[in-house]
Design a protein around this nucleic acid. Structure first.
Lengths: 342, 342
DNA sequence: CTGAAAGCGCTTACAG
DNA sequence: CTGAAAGCGCTTACAG
């Protein structure tokens, strides 16, 4: 592989001039620039990123760490990140921790190894000690996207989960529902916690008692929706609406409802969360909370790069969601309707 | 960040000895090793990968390039790759080209930039010129996994697509089907081509005429299955079996069949390809061709690392598949049954 | 078993 | 506008 030395020899200049001609053309005579460029092309020059990084102490590379690649929810977010990073001349790598802390640690170590400049974290399922030291200092530049942590303060880009969940539940209440169940994500996850909080807030506001047996812990997956849905619907007194913390779970509920011959939305309303592509194609089309995934990715990347550039940006950004009403929700049967004065 | 120099000073030895104590402890006196290790721990030493790579001219890192992260089919393959790579002390990065050739090129350039040692390619949708030069020489160390190219010879790990498709179609024929349609992947993709070839081979062997109107080009997606399925089934003379080049498409067919009140497998048999997780949970459970995804990933990674280690391994490996018969396939209605002597 | 020295390929402060 | 020189942090052939 050709180096600056080869170019220098061919162009009859020093390596310093080669470096300048290539990186800062304005610092060099027009003629020199042309000669150097021609020489570089001729020898097939490709800069050695290791040498440059070693010298500059930065790599212009960041890594996105996800807990599980199979979750297609992340694809759009990562895409938004790459889009933005490339505009700023940064490279993006993806690391799949596969829910293995050792692997996650390996990715974080890339910062200390000087292989990447910073980390975008797409999971909150990481022990706090891996992220901050004893004195509460961040161990490396990191921004959380979509997820967030409650016990420490990390730069983060996310939606307002409490507000979004509250709005979704209020929408059901206003239609007359009060027998509302909820399928959550893992309750160790702050996102799930926040969404349950949103539900409770809505209930409190409308003076509806919470039936704790109807708040069931899932894991965002289709199968959790299917199984917990069966548990809810396979009794005499089932809810008239189920608010799910993910579209996947909502689609699982749709499936078990169909198997049990429960008509959606006539007998049962189902509301999801995320607005994944498939939510428009299932039967019936799903009412859900839209998350601006591209924007989350883009914003998180911008935040990280601004931090790396020492721009002291606002370290917490909340992005807007949107309740998208489709065909899986309707007022409950008249005999189960809430009697309230609006 | 601490360097070997800091350790050397603290341990009272030279940097050369530090390097040896850390990388090749047997070359150093027991006492020295202990002193150096203690000093390293004390200063919180973390090797600078850039410096090491620059010196060694290798990075112990490879990159997996996928065309689209959203395709969950890749998750298991990548997992198998990471598993194996970590055992060999290699780091794995993932690059999502998002079907953008410029981005793919950026990832390939990481080899020339000395950021990675080699590439695992999970897509065949790359122009040949990006992979080999005018003289047909590979531009960089690369192994294809699952996919392959017909016009050039690249190291590759894949299944026998012709054979697997032939077996699947023969299974249908032996049950009495002869009105068999096929939903393919993109026909520019050698995989799809091979699977169509397998179908033709089976037809030829059993002297069944191919109805070209029943070989429909899709793109592996659910929606393609749904739409092309409708096209096939919304006529008077529809096939009694549909062989799909992906489970996703097969599930799309299942959906449209249900909407059109066509009973599967009674009136219509559906066979998929891949054996994705969901194929066991759909209604009815899908008959499909199992691909050993973990093994494909593992084997491809081994092949690449062996190439990098100059071990001259066999550059083409074919892994076994398995026809998994579940509930979406059965003999055709008696009036549509093939009359043959077995 | 250990150290002094060179060198991987780049960039930049300094001097001219 | 340009060059000589130093240095980023590591490893290793060489000499002792």
């Amino acid at each position: 592989m050709a180096t600056v030395k080869d170019i220098a020899r061919l162009a009859g200049v020093s390596t310093a001039t080669v470096s300048r001609a290539l990186a800062a053309p304005e610092k060099v005579a027009e003629q020199t620039r042309i000669r150097v460029e021609a020489a570089a092309a001729k020898v097939g020059y490709f800069p050695n990123a290791m040498a440059r990084s070693l010298r500059m102490n930065e790599t212009k590379t960041v890594i996105v760490v996800v807990s599980n690649l199979a979750s297609s929810f992340f694809a759009d977010i990562i895409n938004g990140m790459e889009e933005f990073a490339h505009r700023r001349g940064y490279k993006v790598l993806i690391g799949d921790s596969n829910d293995d802390l050792q692997r996650a640690q390996n990715y974080f170590d890339l910062v200390d190894s000087k292989i990447v400049d910073g980390v975008l974290l797409l999971t909150s399922d990481i022990p706090v000690e891996m992220l901050v030291d004893e004195r509460g200092q961040q161990r490396f530049p990191v921004v959380m996207a979509s997820e967030f942590l409650t016990d420490i303060n990390l730069p983060t880009v996310h939606i307002d989960n409490v507000y979004s969940a509250r709005k979704a539940v209020e929408y059901l209440i206003v239609m007359g529902h009060y027998k509302i169940a909820c399928l959550t994500g893992p309750l160790t996850n702050p996102i799930s916690e926040a969404r349950v909080m949103g539900l409770r807030t809505a209930f409190a506001e409308w003076k509806i008692d919470v039936n704790e047996d109807w708040i069931l812990e899932g894991d965002f997956s289709f199968y959790a929706g299917y199984n917990l849905g069966r548990q809810l619907l396979n009794t005499e007194d089932w809810p008239t609406a189920i608010f799910c913390h993910s579209d996947e779970m909502a689609i699982g509920v749709l499936k078990i409802a169909k198997e049990l011959n429960i008509a959606v939305p006539k007998q049962l309303s189902v509301v999801g969360f995320d607005n994944i592509t498939y939510s428009e194609y299932c039967e019936p089309k799903l009412t859900t909370v839209h998350q601006p995934r591209d924007l989350i990715g883009e914003t998180a990347m911008k935040l990280l790069l601004d931090i790396l550039a020492d721009k002291k940006p606002n370290p917490e950004m909340t992005l807007p969601t949107q309740l998208i009403v489709r065909d899986s929700s309707a007022p409950p049967p008249i005999e189960h309707r809430l009697k309230i004065d609006l």
